[in-house]
């Protein structure tokens, strides 16, 4: 059943127009942030990318500082072996038996499966296929002690890791297990929310209006202050979050 329920759209919009005393028309002048075409966005995106490369060292410092303040346990290294050793030590200290990870590019750079498995940890890559149903992958995620992901973006302004779930990148890997570990590459980093949303707008229009079903900002652990305004870490999401910054 796909037909809309409630009042028909035309009727609803008419009542809004009556309230505004307006005729059906686009805003005049057009809204600047909707006006620019793909080529204008491309010019702006190019400018942003050039700036990000130029300022990268300072940006990495800023991101590490803000992420730490936001509740991430940040480990910085540009050495893949050191990164792997750190991941191993986190897993050991938690007594991890089951790990799940997404299927992202960064895991071609940091090969986590073999070392973790050699210490007796079972590692599941969450990516469905004819042999592996979504249901069985979901059970692996529920059973996991840690979830490992990369980042699609990272925002220095807020210390956030941005994840855009799709094939190979589950929504649940970073929220269901009690611990989340994210690997962030220098090229994932943008300076501000403005950078992020402009780049996303360009990608959206480049793909003919495809946003992807989900985009999630993750900044530190799950938290609440709903009882007596007292901070508690780890309510429904991970209690502990680690960020390995590869640069």
């Amino acid at each position: 059943m796909d037909r809309p329920l409630g009042v028909p759209k035309a009727e609803f919009l008419d009542s809004v127009r009556r309230a505004l005393d307006r005729k059906p028309a686009a805003p005049d002048p057009a809204y600047p942030r909707l006006l620019d075409d793909v080529s204008a966005l491309q010019v702006e995106a190019k400018r942003i990318r050039a700036r990000l490369i130029e300022t990268r060292p300072a940006l990495l410092d800023r991101f590490a500082e803000v992420a730490e303040a936001g509740g991430w346990n940040v480990h910085r290294t540009s050495d893949p072996e050191n990164a792997m050793a750190h991941i191993q030590s986190v897993a050991d200290s938690l007594g991890v038996k089951n790990a799940v990870r997404s299927d992202q590019e960064v895991f071609a750079q940091i090969l986590v499966d073999a070392p973790l498995e050699s210490t007796g940890i079972s590692v599941t890559t969450v990516s469905h296929s004819p042999d592996r149903s979504r249901e069985s992958l979901r059970s692996s995620i529920i059973a996991a002690d840690i979830g490992l992901t990369g980042a699609d973006y990272a925002v220095a302004e807020t210390g956030s890791v941005i994840i855009m779930p799709r094939k190979g990148l589950s929504r649940l890997v970073s929220v269901v297990p009690p611990v989340h570990l994210a690997l962030v590459r220098p090229e994932d980093l943008v300076e501000s929310l403005d950078d992020l949303f402009l780049l996303r707008r360009l990608e959206y229009h480049d793909k003919g209006g495809e946003m992807g079903s989900y985009l999630n900002f993750i900044t530190g652990p799950s938290r609440t202050a709903d009882i007596e305004q007292t901070l508690v870490v780890g309510v429904h999401g991970p209690k502990e979050v680690h960020l390995v910054l590869l640069g």
Binding site: G70, R171, L172, G212, Y214, L215, N216, G220, A225
Partner: peptide
């Protein structure tokens, strides 16, 4: 609201899961 620089999560949802998505 709470004096936070940003909340732990900001979720942006556009339609249902796509055919190839792992979950949703």
């Amino acid at each position: 609201a709470t004096g936070q620089r940003i909340t732990s999560y900001v979720s942006m949802i556009t339609g249902p899961r796509r055919a190839d998505d792992e979950d949703g």
